[in-house]
C-alpha cells in the first residue's frame, strides 16, 4: 500500500483543478470500489477510477441473468446493485485513501432528491476527488434515462447537484439521444465542471429457443469494443460544442483506442469492459501512452487533446 511515484510527468493532466498522474481511469461499474483490483494492479500507478454507482441507500439490483455476451461486447442489466453511499465512506474509503489515485464517486438516484441525498452523504467522505453524476443508466425503469435524455431535466439536476456538492462535478452523458450536443450544452450551462461520455447504449438479445430476452430485465446496456466508434464520434461532437474538459469512455481496450479519444477531444479516458477480460489493461495503456509520447517526441500529452485534423 506504499505510495510510489514513478509517474511519467508527460502524462499528467488536470480536470477542474484536480491533478491526475495520468489520463487513464477505471470506469464506473467495471472497477468495483477499486479495492478489488489491489492484488491485480498497482493502484498507485492508476490515474484514478470512478466507483460503482452509489445511491443514498443500498440497492439489491436486478434478478439474474444480468449479463450476456454479444459480438465485440456485452449487455448488462445489473440494476445498480451497490452498498450505498454511507457504507462506501465507512467501509471502502479508509482503505482507498492509502493509495495515490484519484477517487471519483459515481452517484445516481431515482429523483433529484435522491441524488442530493447521496451527494450530501458523500460530502463527508474524506479522499473523494470529484463526483460523477450518472444521469443515463438505462437499466432501472424509474432511473436516469428520463433525466439524461432531456436537456431541461438534465440541466435542472446538474444545477441542484452542483449546489449540493462540495467537489467538482462530472456529468456522465447518455448516448441514447438524437443529438448529444444539446444535452451537453444544457448541462455545461447549468454548471457542470466536466463531462464524461458515453454511458452504455441500450440493447437487447433474444434466446431463440425460449423466445425470451436473454437478460431478466429485458433490455440492457451495451458496452465493449463494439460501441467505440460511436463513442469517439460523440466525444468529437461534444468537444466542438462545449469548453469544459471531457473524459472519453466506450470500448477502450488498447493504447491506440485511448489515443483516439484524446485526439478527438478527451482530456482523460475511462476503461470499462476490458477490465473484465484483462484486469491489468489500465497499466498496459499507461505504459503504451508513455511509449507513444516517446515515439512521437511529445513533451506532454496535453498537446494531443483535441488535436484531430478534420475539415
Amino acid at each position: 500500500m506504499s505510495k510510489v511515484s514513478n509517474h511519467d510527468p508527460r502524462l499528467a493532466v488536470e480536470i477542474a483543478g484536480i491533478h491526475f498522474n495520468n489520463p487513464v481511469l477505471g470506469a464506473s461499474g467495471t472497477f468495483g470500489y477499486g479495492l478489488e483490483f489491489a492484488d491485480l494492479i498497482d493502484l498507485n500507478r492508476l490515474g484514478g477510477f470512478a466507483t460503482k454507482g452509489l445511491s443514498a441507500k443500498p440497492l439489491a439490483g436486478n434478478a439474474p441473468p444480468r449479463i450476456v455476451e454479444t459480438h465485440g461486447g456485452m449487455l448488462n442489466a445489473i440494476g445498480l446493485q451497490n452498498i450505498g453511499a454511507r457504507a462506501f465512506i465507512e467501509e471502502k474509503l479508509p482503505r482507498l485513501r492509502g493509495y495515490d489515485t484519484r477517487i471519483i464517486a459515481n452517484v445516481f438516484g431515482y429523483s433529484d432528491e435522491d441524488y442530493i441525498e447521496a451527494l450530501t452523504i458523500l460530502n463527508d467522505g474524506e479522499g473523494i476527488a470529484a463526483y460523477e453524476l450518472n444521469i443515463s443508466c438505462p437499466n432501472v425503469k424509474e432511473g436516469g434515462i428520463v433525466i439524461g435524455n432531456s436537456p431541461d431535466a438534465a440541466a435542472r439536476l446538474t444545477e441542484k447537484a452542483k449546489r449540493a456538492s462540495s467537489r467538482p462535478l462530472i456529468v456522465k452523458l447518455s448516448p441514447n439521444v438524437t443529438d448529444i450536443t444539446k444535452v451537453a450544452r444544457a448541462i455545461v450551462g447549468a454548471g457542470a465542471d466536466c463531462l464524461s461520455l458515453i454511458n452504455t447504449i441500450v440493447g437487447m438479445s433474444v434466446d431463440v429457443n425460449t423466445r425470451r430476452p436473454r437478460l431478466s430485465y429485458g433490455t440492457g446496456g451495451l458496452s465493449g469494443p463494439a460501441i467505440r466508434p460511436i463513442a469517439v464520434r460523440m466525444v468529437y461532437e461534444v468537444a466542438r460544442t462545449v469548453d469544459v474538459p471531457l473524459i472519453g469512455i466506450g470500448g477502450i481496450a488498447s493504447t491506440s483506442d485511448a489515443l483516439e479519444f484524446i485526439i478527438a477531444g478527451a482530456t482523460a479516458i475511462q476503461i470499462g469492459t476490458a477490465n473484465y477480460y484483462d484486469p491489468t489493461i489500465t497499466m498496459k495503456v499507461i505504459d503504451g501512452l508513455s511509449e507513444y509520447c516517446e515515439n512521437q517526441s511529445l513533451e506532454n500529452i496535453n498537446s494531443l487533446i483535441g488535436s484531430i485534423k478534420a475539415e
Partner: peptide, 28 residues
C-alpha cells in the same frame, strides 16, 4: 453462472439467496 470478470467487480453472476426479508442489498 455466466461471468463477466470472475473476481467480483461486474456483479453479473449473481444468484438469489434467502434473506428472510424483503428484497434488499444482500438478496443477491
Amino acid at each position: 453462472a455466466p461471468m463477466g470478470c470472475g473476481f467480483g467487480v461486474c456483479v453479473g453472476c449473481v444468484v438469489a439467496v434467502n434473506t428472510g426479508g424483503p428484497l434488499d442489498y444482500g438478496s443477491y
